[in-house]
């Protein structure tokens, strides 16, 4: 796909090349944003997973400080760490056991990872198209420059 397009780009006018470059650059940026979003989502899920693991190690009745605000903590005791509530999106929460909760995080992380890999592939393809367009555009402009000065 990229190579066939690259062959076609040789015959294109400067304006067309500029348009293609702009378009692909826009797409590359969009994809980069998506990749960043996936990255933050994955790190959040990973921290949730470690938090769950941490919680599962505490015995029932363990003392702890619960944050009410970022700077105000109240003492509390851990009642039951076997059941957790999981936010599955669009306002729905599901009660799960600790293992199911961890499994949920794992599954989501894997899903995000596979999406991430797919997106990376598309992004690199777009990037090569954009680079190719840039190279050909440069060459064309160089060709045009001496012609116009003479």
């Amino acid at each position: 796909m990229a190579s066939s397009k690259g062959g076609g780009m040789e015959k294109m006018s400067v304006e067309q090349l500029k348009a293609i470059k702009e378009q692909t650059d826009l797409e590359v940026n969009l994809l980069q944003d998506s990749l960043n979003n996936i990255r933050t989502a994955t790190s959040r899920l990973e921290s949730a997973s470690t938090a769950l693991h941490d919680l599962s190690l505490r015995p029932q009745g363990a003392k702890m400080l619960v944050p009410l605000t970022a700077s105000l903590y109240v003492p509390g005791t851990l009642d039951d760490a076997r059941k957790v509530l999981v936010d599955i999106g669009t306002g729905y929460f599901v009660e799960k056991t600790m293992d199911e909760g961890k499994d949920y995080c794992e599954r989501k992380i894997n899903l995000l990872k596979s999406n991430f890999d797919q997106l990376i592939e598309v992004a690199t393809k777009k990037k090569t198209i954009s680079d190719e367009a840039a190279v050909i555009l440069q060459a064309k402009l160089k060709q045009l420059a001496p012609a116009s000065s003479s």
């Binding site: 729905y92 599901v94 009660e95």
Partner: peptide, 11 residues
């Protein structure tokens, strides 16, 4: 399974 819906601030 127990399912809760978030309505405003309450489940």
């Amino acid at each position: 399974a127990n399912v809760y819906k978030l309505i405003g601030p309450v489940l």
